[in-house]
């Protein structure tokens, strides 16, 4: 699980980029607290061939990336 909460643009997506580069996991969970981070991570993950499911939990979002 990568926790991107509270981090400014574009650090959440950079963290995801690094995680996907290091070993290309079949699935990855990402915690975010800003809609813009959700959008950026989703766009990036899709460009890397991942499918993205977003679950809202209060003010946080859990993104599940699967190949």
């Amino acid at each position: 699980m990568i926790d991107t909460r509270g981090l400014s643009c574009p650090i959440p997506v950079v963290m995801v980029q690094k995680a996907l580069k290091n070993g290309a996991p079949a699935s990855l969970e990402v915690l975010a607290d800003a809609q813009v981070a959700v959008e950026n991570i989703t766009r990036f993950a899709r460009s890397q061939g991942y499918q993205v499911a977003v679950a809202e939990d209060g003010s946080d979002f859990t993104l599940t990336l699967t190949k």
């Binding site: 981090l7 650090i11 950079v14």
Partner: peptide, 10 residues
């Protein structure tokens, strides 16, 4: 940024 720069969490 690629080296991990961040001003930390809000």
């Amino acid at each position: 940024l690629k080296k991990g720069f961040s001003l930390g969490r809000a």
